[in-house]
Nucleic acid binder design. Sequence first.
DNA 1: TATGGGTGGATTTTT
DNA 2: TCCACCCATA
Length: 752
Amino acid sequence: MEELLCNLSPEQREAVTTTEGPVLVVAGAGSGKTRVLTHRIAYLIARGVPPSRILAITFTNKAAREMKERSIALVGDAAREVWISTFHSFAARILRMGGEAIGLPQNFTILDTDDVRSLFRAILEELNLDPKREDPRRYAAEVSRLKNEGTSPEDYLKRFDPTRPWERLLAQIYLRYEERKAQTGSLDFDDLLLRAVELLEHEAGSRLATRFRYIHVDEYQDTNPMQYRLLHALTREHANLFVVGDADQSIYAWRGADPRIFLSFVEDFPGAKVITLERNYRSTQKILDAANALIRHNPGRPPKELWTENEGKEPVRVLFAGNQNEEAEAVVKRIDALTREGYALGDIAVLYRTNGQSRVVEEALLSAGIPYRIVGGLRFYERKEIKDVLAYLRLIANPVDDLSFLRVVNEPRRGIGESTLARLRDFADSMGSSLFHAACRADEADIPRSKAKVLIGFCTLLRELGARSRELPLARFVDEVLEVTGYRAALLALPEPERSSRLENVQEFLNMATSFQALHPEADLPAFLAEVALLTDVDTFEEAEDRVTLLTLHAAKGLEFPVVFILGLEEGLLPHHLSVEEGNVDEERRLLYVGMTRAKERLFLTYAEYRSQYGSPMRPSRPSRFLEEIPSELLVVEDVRSPWAREILRRHRFSTAVADERETAGVAGLPSFGRFGSSREERLGKTGGKAGPEDEPWQPGDRLVHAIFGEGTVVQVRERGDEIELVVAFPHPLGVRTLLPRYAPIIRRKGS
DNA sequence: TATGGGTGGATTTTT
DNA sequence: TCCACCCATA
């Protein structure tokens, strides 16, 4: 026991040993909260608490896995019996155990975001609405909001305002959506929580509901109201609720996390003990100073200052690039230098606000031959081939899952097209059965004989597979599905780039099945499917590989890296303009704070003077307000702009103070960029090829330099309305581009 | 019913 | 720039 506690700080120790009653640990970034959680679990077990009565909720499956491993390392195999999972996995698990009590099938399908979208789409079509004009996602979001605030379709039907057509429609759609899910035995993410609460309330006092005597929640600041209700349902008979969180790291308000839940813990759970951890064991003081300075700008937060004894040598650096390509190149150059200093590629992370920003970085890394891996973007299970395989498995486990049926009935091609499916749909409706069962009796339907034969064949095939699923080990079974359905053969027939990549992904899926089985030997197909449905990309991320990691700021939560680059510190990007419009700048600030506090030794922030979103047009941007909020003496600015970019900048009359005075450093120079794009008129008036002493009309043959493309020759001058367009030839591989001299970042070459 | 090309459209963050 | 979806065509 002493051994367990001896390398904890006094505050950590107190958190670990306060086992009874509600406890709130306000844990700053890097203050060892995972350590506290694992030690507490170990401590409880050492004190004789049965592991199966301990529950720990984490934010990601990966965090759960890590916590489990670390607990096992501390107390041995007993920790295997502890329940450690995310809210959603926990909910799925208890629903599979006891869902019958509230009328759920044991083999329910879990719908992911994509499934939900297509379901809403289908409903809109049924109601003869154009899914193009009525964005299905909007309804999905709205319905999700209603569900999270606990409004059932029936509630809403009573409550909505019938004079508002939109609400009327929403009520109708919501109802239908719930019906369709009930019919197809499926649950969406919200349902998992909702139904779990229902189950626990229904079964109040039962073994399930009273099973957990010690409950832990990590990242409590990102808890949403339904998760909160779930916690209440679990703590009816005791208040041993131990939560860890940091209001400064709350970055999921947009997804329904309610910051008040965190802030009012002490009132919600009377007698709660509050322990604050401010000592940081991760970053250098230089990094913490910058992060502290930034977050101090958030109003209404309880003051908290991270500190460490690790002073650190390297300052936080700001790389100031001409455009996003230069930004990416500067990052790659740094990475190269860092590896020569002895850093491994796996030590380095590149963080950004939006997934789209990864592309330029990828290209730069690729051409420098530096291996990388992307977390997020297209998640593993969102890939087509994985979804296909999953749909087969889901349909086998749950034949009434029409969505999965539709996905695979003609994948690979079986000649079942739109019109056959419409007839099948009618037939199913007339019998009130699922598509699958209708397909099994397709010969009785108004369907051409040849098609009916195919459908019945498909049905027989899946039934046989259903029987096999109970005989074969999981991975072998998945393999058989691929074989028997002809899916693998179809992949093999694909043209080359797709062929190998898809086969690789399918192979990876098989590996996942194998390792899942090794971990849970008793698990059946539904258990595996539940696991996979709740897996995210971060969960499959392994540090072991020596590659640079690319990920969004959101995905970086809970991770740490010796070296961190954060890209695009520009107004409109970080803070993102949509958040600014909604008045959520504080959350963006927290997002950056989270990113900065991931860094252990080195932190780079980058800013590009011009950025193009989706190819066209290059737009100037202002440095993020966040850069100005960090005192200049805490930052060293380095100008990494190309000579072109600098020259253009000078022409555009923007200060080059930063460039010339980088020895004295500081962001002091940056605010002078404030007028950059500050008003449209100003930009139009003062920038572009029209202004300047050589304000003569453009002519073919003129030479110019473009901030991104470099030197080019004007081949044609066109007028379009009152706008002048230049057709400019750039060297291979850029080719001919059309530019608007009024906006394009170009300058004319002398002597043209 | 399958395929290809063209078009229009959209791009924050994700359990 | 890329992607999803639509439509015309085989």
